[in-house]
Amino acid sequence: MSDVAAFSVISPALARQQASPTPGQVPASVRAPRKDALRCTACSMRSICMPQGLTPEELQRIESLICPSRTIKQGEAIYRANDSFQNIYAVRVGSFKTVVMHRDGRDQVTGFHLAGDSLGLDGVCSGHHSCDAVALEDSKVCIIPFHLLETMCREVKVVQQHVHRMMGGEIVRESSQMMLLGTMSAEQRVATFLLNLSDRLRMRGYSPGEFHLRMTREEIGSYLGVKLETVSRMLSKFQRDGLLDTHGKDIRILDHEGLVRV
């Protein structure tokens, strides 16, 4: 799902000055299409974040919920753990990481989110977010108030199905990460990470064989459950083995099938 910037668009830590609407009250800005409304039809991520099979009227209705996209600077958060859940978000441009804090104060990266990915569904269960969502680079997000989306889900089946798919995708992602951390060697974890990132970029129309990492090696290590030095050592090994050509954060996959066989 794509864009909105209503009420608490950003984390309270960044935007407490924005007033929330009275519960149940629909702001005038989302009751009808506006001249400044974001046009989903013009978004390159539409095929990923928007439900398919919408009628022109249903598409216009979704666009009526959407406010101009909001720029999030590198290092800023859309929301923080324990913030009240009000909106779901989609990355329109850029990338984000989600981070949880352990009891001993250590941070752990739980996911990397590219353009077209959704954020914020962790808050549906408890009404509060369980992690921080932090921009890895200057990015733009699309935000939809969840209570308005729920209303539309009850009335438009394809939207309901799309939200269910988004939630199901989160379950699959978390299960995949558990398998990655629980059953794979460090070498396999790094190879799987690169292959997964390559596939996600391909789905978005970008080169699957040559890309620039937006995250640091330390962040990759945190996500994979290995040390920074291990990530660097594995990338160097893959380069020696002729699987990759690496220059800093620039990655070129030379032998895709070789990476699969790792």
Rank of each mutant, 00 (worst) to 15 (best):
P56G: 10
E218K: 02
T110V: 15
R80Y: 12
T41S: 15
R202K: 15
H113R: 05
Q239K: 13
R189T: 03
Q18M: 09
Q74M: 08
V9G: 07
R103V: 15
V159W: 09
I220A: 02
S175I: 14
C40V: 11
D241G: 04
V124M: 13
P21A: 06
T216H: 00
G123C: 08
S126E: 08
L244N: 07
G248M: 04
V124G: 07
D241T: 05
L14S: 12
S236Y: 12
D245G: 04
M179Q: 14
R92V: 14
A77F: 01
D83M: 01
L148G: 14
E210L: 09
V231Q: 02
T246Q: 01
V231W: 00
D138S: 01
D138M: 00
C40I: 08
G111Y: 00
R200F: 01
G105H: 06
C125H: 08
L149K: 11
S44R: 07
I88S: 06
T230P: 05
H129L: 09
I144W: 02
N196A: 04
A115L: 04
V4M: 06
L136Y: 01
M152C: 03
L114F: 02
H102T: 12
Q52S: 15
R39C: 15
C43W: 06
Q161V: 13
P21I: 07
A13K: 12
P56E: 11
P68S: 08
G24F: 11
T55Q: 07
V226N: 08
Q86S: 10
Y79R: 06
Q161H: 12
A42F: 11
L119N: 02
K249V: 01
F238M: 13
S44L: 15
M152H: 06
L201R: 08
G225H: 02
Q74L: 12
R214H: 12
T98A: 10
S118L: 15
L195I: 10
V163D: 04
A135G: 04
C125M: 14
M215N: 02
I88E: 11
V156F: 00
I220D: 00
G120M: 07
S198L: 08
R154D: 14
